[in-house]
Design a protein around this nucleic acid. Sequence first.
DNA 1: GATTCACGTTACCCATGGCTAACGTCAACC
DNA 2: GGTTGACGTTAGCCATGGGTAACGTGAATC
Lengths: 230, 230
Amino acid sequence: MGNVNRGLLAVGSDRSPSRAREDYVKAIYQLGAGGPVRAAALARYLNVSRVSVSKAKRLLEADGLLDREREPSQPLRLSRRGRRLAIAMVRRHRLLETFFHRVLRIPLERVHAEAERIEHVISDDVAMRIATLLGRPQRDPHGHPIPYDDDLRTEKPLPTLAALRAGDRANVISLDDRDDAAVAVLADGGLLPGARIVVQRSDASCVVVRRGKRVVTLRRAHAAMVRIGA
Amino acid sequence: MGNVNRGLLAVGSDRSPSRAREDYVKAIYQLGAGGPVRAAALARYLNVSRVSVSKAKRLLEADGLLDREREPSQPLRLSRRGRRLAIAMVRRHRLLETFFHRVLRIPLERVHAEAERIEHVISDDVAMRIATLLGRPQRDPHGHPIPYDDDLRTEKPLPTLAALRAGDRANVISLDDRDDAAVAVLADGGLLPGARIVVQRSDASCVVVRRGKRVVTLRRAHAAMVRIGA
DNA sequence: GATTCACGTTACCCATGGCTAACGTCAACC
DNA sequence: GGTTGACGTTAGCCATGGGTAACGTGAATC
């Protein structure tokens, strides 16, 4: 039957997913890296009650975005369609961030919030035209890879700067873009993807790193936002 | 008291207006050119029932976007804040269209629909950075002026191509972008802002115009989408 | 073994933004 | 003057997406 609403807002299951449902799908993908996710963890991640997650679960199953579980209380697992939707949103998000940073020169710590709202409403055509404009970039300005196909990512989680000890050397690979304040501090210290660093000290509260001639002191929480490679 | 919702979707009067409310405000502005608008006309324009308009009216008044009317059954009149919001949306819409057309090379008949969704979620900062990128364009690709300040426009409605008679000459000033099919036909015929044309014939069903060596036959409905100047 | 605690669910409430049915008003038209 | 029609409103329905309160389950902890 579908739905009868013909007004200003899309409502019902025969339309494209609402903003809220897209947020659920994306969060499940990012929390679980493609695998199942506990409802309580999802609720904490999205700052929402467990009840809301429980209800969203049923709606997302009805939309075909989650695999149906026969047992109740089973974790949330994206369907093939759900996974494709999540990856498309990550693609749009990262392309937007790259465009905002490279072309519009928006400060790094602000591109995430801007992209977060727009990723739900731009068409795939616009996203791919932006990709072409930018020369099909492989990584966004935080260092995260841009998924151009719908394949499952095997992004193994890299260690963070918080795991290093004095004397360790590393390359900055990427920054967690969810914490604007952290990104501002890190960008200000020049700890951007590609930077080569040496850890000078690491204690319970702070991590001190040297980058070239510059010494930067980070709160541990901020150091944990920096993914590193050899 | 405001509202308690802290979830994924903004709800309540202390947040920025929802997509639906922004659509109402913009429609009131475009229908009334700043003046009052009848509820029934608004309902027809937005493809919504009169009841929905009646309810929206109360909510928009509570938001401070409409002037409160003491008499019931009075037309809808934007408040100063409502007018500012409407103009900001028109500005964002037209800047987005210009960007899509000039930079991303999206066909003219598709830029309206793309901008229509994004105009609700981009920040004014992004809009102004796009304006700078484009060299602060004065008109969008359909020929409509881009309002950079919040002043009331005195756009007197221009005559359309449908009002001309055989032998008349005119300049195309702008196209109505709400009808994608018409825009596609007009762009295909080269009847874009700036084009100089001569009317060859005009009858009940068709208008035939010459542009340079090219002769274009238009359905009357499409000719009515073309605003002209001397 | 008893207790505690996290988890998922249910029952209910609320605001938004659609809808139809029905009504009173007012103006225009026979 | 009566009828017709457009208009705005009210009452009531529905889906979405939030929220609390409360409950049963199961695992961990004492």
